[in-house]
């Protein structure tokens, strides 16, 4: 009984919203991108684009189609517990992967001539920009704010389960949309690479 009560009343987190130690690797990655672009280092651009893109796509698909359905089936205290552990890390990882992929990808496309209107698959390049725009809108307007809001809610002395549930529902649906968009990205990128 005591255990059940403890599960119904999750302990709020008092730590910083994001893991401060994680800012160092983020800074290193961002500095690496700037240096790579500044020096026109082709292998570096390829590395940042392929590694960042692969991780971004995999994480979006994993969040949208694996973690999302699992989260929906969990009890509220379990959802809160998972959220407390997962979301602070996602707040650092996702923007870093997105910046790394897009910045390196744009420069790579520029070097390869893929941005030019004369490029035979230019339409696919523009399609990839549209897909990225949709993902950016969903991520910046829905995913990221819900992510931050849920972390603030969990810092309250008495987190409100209905608010956490509402925010997590929004997060899961938005992750599903970006997951579907990532399937489109995979089609476009393999088309461009072949």
């Amino acid at each position: 009984m005591a255990v059940a009560v403890a599960q119904e009343q999750p302990v709020p987190i008092t730590a910083p919203i994001i893991p401060v130690r994680g800012l160092f690797p983020v800074g290193v990655v961002l500095a690496g991108i700037v240096v790579t672009i500044g020096t026109n280092w082709t292998w570096g651009l390829d590395f940042f684009h392929v590694v960042g893109g692969g991780m971004w796509t995999a994480l979006d698909l994993f969040m949208g189609f694996v973690i999302g359905p699992i989260m929906r089936s969990l009890s509220i205290p379990a959802r809160i517990e998972l959220t407390k552990k997962l979301m602070p890390k996602m707040l650092l990882i996702m923007p870093t992967l997105v910046t790394m992929t897009l910045a390196a990808g744009f420069q790579l496309a520029r070097h390869n001539g893929m941005l030019e209107t004369s490029f035979s698959l230019h339409g696919w390049v523009v399609a990839s920009m549209i897909v990225v725009a949709v993902m950016a809108i969903v991520a910046l307007a829905l995913l990221q704010p819900a992510n931050i809001a849920v972390l603030f809610e969990l810092r309250r002395p008495q987190p409100r389960p209905e608010v956490v549930q509402r925010l997590m529902r929004r997060f899961i649906y938005a992750a599903g949309v970006t997951g579907a968009m990532q399937v489109a990205t995979l089609v476009i990128m393999t088309r461009l690479a072949s």
Binding site: T117, M129, A133, A136, I137, A141
Partner: peptide, 26 residues
Amino acid sequence: VTQLGMVSIGFVATGVIYLAAYLPKR
């Protein structure tokens, strides 16, 4: 606010894609 913010960012994205789709021409 959220819906209008999405519309505003949507216009920004459309403007940037429009300009980028013409590169390297103006």
